[in-house]
Structure formats: C-alpha cells, structure tokens
Nucleic acid binder design. Structure first.
Lengths: 214, 214
DNA sequence: CCGTTTGACTTGACATTGTCAAGTAGTACT
DNA sequence: AGTACTACTTGACAATGTCAAGTCAAACGG
C-alpha cells in the first residue's frame, strides 16, 4: 500500500501546513502553537516534528511557499506585461498587494526573519532569492530595457519598498484604521497605486527609459 | 519616603520596558517572555503585571512610546523643513528610516496589530493617530500647501508606504541580504531615498503644487 | 519466509511559559 | 491604632516546545 502511504505522507504535511496558515491568517503568527496546529490537523502533538524540525521549520516552509508564489506572480506580470511603464508598474503593485491580501498567512511570515530564519533554512533563502530576481527582471523588462544594473537595482528596491509598505499597512491594519469612515478603502488603495505608478513613469521618462516592448 | 517610592515605581516600569525593548531588538518580539523580562529587570516574575495588564500590555506601551517618538520626528522635519518638496520628502524618508533603525525595538512592535492590539489599548491608538496626523501635516506643509485633502491623503499614504516598506525591508533583513556584496548598503539606501524624493517632486510639480514656504 | 530496517507516526516526560490567586511589607491617611 | 493602598513576592496551574522512547505496518535482503 505504498501509494496510500505516500498520499498519507503528503496529506499530513499539507494538513499541518494548511492548519498553520489558517491560524496565522486569523490570529497571527504569534499565537501559532505546535500543539494547536497538530490538533487542527487531527494528528498527535508530535506528528508535525516528523516533517518540520521545529516551530520555525513550519514558518520557513510557509515562507518558502510564499516566495515561490510571489515569484510566479511577478513572472505573470512580466510575461503578459506589454504597454507603458506606468501600466507595468501598476500591474506589479497590484499583483504584490493582491498576493499579500489573498495569502496573508504566507505574507505575514515571509519577512519575519526572527521566526523563520531565512539564513538557516536554505530552501527558503533560495525561494526568496528567486522572487527578488524576478522583480529585477520585471523592472528591467517593463520599466526600461536600456536601464543600467545600478539604476535597475535602485528602481527595484524603490518599487519593492512601495509595494511592501502598502501591503504591510493594509494587511496589518493601521491603514484601514486611519482612513476617514467615508473613504472607500479599495478606492483609496487604487489612488495610491495609481499615484505611485504615475510617478514611476514620470521618473522613467525623465531618465529616457523605454520598456522592452517599445 | 514617598519620593524614593515613586522613583522606585518609575524605575521598575522603565526597567521592565527597557529590558523588553532590548530583547525585541536582539531576538525579536516573538521570543519576548514575561519571565525573561522580569529576570533581566531584576524583579520577581510577577512584578511586570503590576504595571502591565499582560504580555500584550508591554507591547502596547512600547508601541505607544514609538508612535509618540515618530510623531515628534515628523514634527521636527516639518518645523525645520523649508525648501523644495524634494528636500522635504527626502528629510521625511530619512527621518522614518532613522527612527526604524535606531528604535528597532519599538518599530518591530508598532505595526503588529496581532500582538499589541491598538484597538484595545486606547493610549496606543491615540499616539498612532497623532503620528498619522503629523504625517498629513508634514505632507500638506512641505509638499503642497494648496493640495486638497483627498490628494493630501493619497500622497501621505504613498509616502508612508514608501518609507515603511524601505524601513521594514532594512530592519527585518531581506534587503541587506539581497544586495550584491560589493554594494554599500548606506549608499544604496540613499540612492533609493533620493529616487523616491525626486519622483515625489516631479509628481508635485506636474500637479502644480508648491510648498508652504514658497 | 523470516529478520531487520525504515517511515510515519504516538505516548510519555520535562522544563518553561503566561497568568490567576493569595500573601506581605511598607507608606499614607484618619 | 487601625484601615486602605501601593508595590511588590511566592505559589500554583494549565498549556506549550521539544527531547526520548515506543509502536506498528510496509519494504527489503537473504
């Protein structure tokens, strides 16, 4: 019954991971307990240790999944991203924000070096490396193919900061709390994204950069 | 001996808070334990409960301190900030980044709604409110006095996102890890900040905005 | 076909944690 | 002198992370 066994294998690992993601989404990474995860996955309190070295191992695995998904999101933008730099920048920002909001459980963990230890967990580090490379690629291809590496790096970090800040502020609450009640959050977010994307286009134009497609 | 008593009072509260901040700076908020804090403050494991309702009460108090400090930093920028919008934007970004790096213990906690519960802790909420108002004020005064409230809000959120993203990426590690070894982190940060500030100025110019001083 | 190894767990144990409850020692006020 | 209050301390308890050891079926080598 080797197939059943390996199915079971994948099952429990996935069950544990999904339970953990759900807990992080609803009550935050802080409150994730190994035993509660096991309980919700319907296994003994020690079963997760078979798949993950310790608590931070679960976080690292979730983080890895997240970075891979983010890299794919960037790749999508890059592949279908034709048109002006403004459109591309907007698409990138939207993709980042969407990822953070739809995969909050992953997002909350990915940038917490204190709990998932990218430096110790090799696969997680590699996934995050790849996501960053995709971002650089996206910048080069959609903002300006003629950009030099130094400027590309600075552009990428600026865009990353912008997207990451907005996502963090939305996902972790403070932004929604600050808005006046009459303001619509979605509208406000799109305003911010449009402003950022437009600014990036102005800057790119000033530097004489042209997207790869044009 | 009432003076000595109240000094003692302030002493223990401060000691507990400082011990907590140091722990968060060095090993992250995750690993902060009530008992370790008490141990490092040299008091019994239950003494902190006299000053803080529970673990999240400590986080809330640190968060409150942080928001007040941040509001003051914004105020400084606004008060001494004359000159172009670009200079002002740059000063604001630098102030935010400096705060995050110098008060990492505070910064790490301030945007973690899961552990410090801004909504439940009234004073913390008020402090964060004030910091945001200072940010709006700063935007209005340094970017464009003639700006309408809606645009001011969008500008403020964009700047906040930008600064917050950069600060988070620096403080929590991923940015430093991504940089090629030959790149100087400080130089790279200034490049990103200059780029952002310049973009903001381009945008403000396009909108016909003028700082209050001019 | 039997013994051994291996994978996928489970049960048990232990130190540590957050926090409730109950004490205690000194000061302040009446 | 007695009461109330402040600023703690000591003790207790359930829950947690994790180490160690056990179980039990499948795979495998002879």
């Amino acid at each position: 019954m080797s197939r059943a066994t390996s199915e079971q294998h994948g099952d429990v690992r996935r069950l544990v991971l999904d339970a953990a993601i759900k807990i992080i989404e609803t009550t935050g990474a802080e409150s994730l307990s190994m035993r509660e995860v096991a309980r919700q996955a319907g296994v003994s309190h020690q079963a997760p240790y078979h798949y993950f070295k310790d608590r931070s191992g679960i976080f690292a695995a979730i983080s890895e999944e997240g970075f891979t998904a983010l890299a794919n999101a960037f790749k999508s933008v890059r592949q279908q991203g034709t048109g002006s730099g403004e459109v591309a920048a907007k698409a990138g920002l939207i993709a980042y924000l969407r990822f953070a909001r739809e995969s909050t459980g992953h997002f909350r963990v990915m940038f917490r070096s204190d709990i998932c230890g990218v430096s110790t967990h090799e696969a997680t580090g590699a996934a995050s490396e790849e996501a960053f490379n995709e971002l650089l690629e996206m910048v080069a291809q959609t903002i300006g193919a003629s950009i030099n590496p130094t400027d590309a790096m600075t552009f990428a970090l600026m865009l990353w900061s912008n997207a990451h800040g907005l996502a963090t502020l939305v996902v972790d609450g403070p932004l929604a709390r600050k808005l006046p009640p009459e303001a619509n959050l979605e509208t406000q977010l799109m305003d911010v994204i449009n402003l950022s994307a437009h600014m990036v286009a102005l800057q790119a134009a000033e530097m004489g950069l042209v997207p790869a497609g044009q």
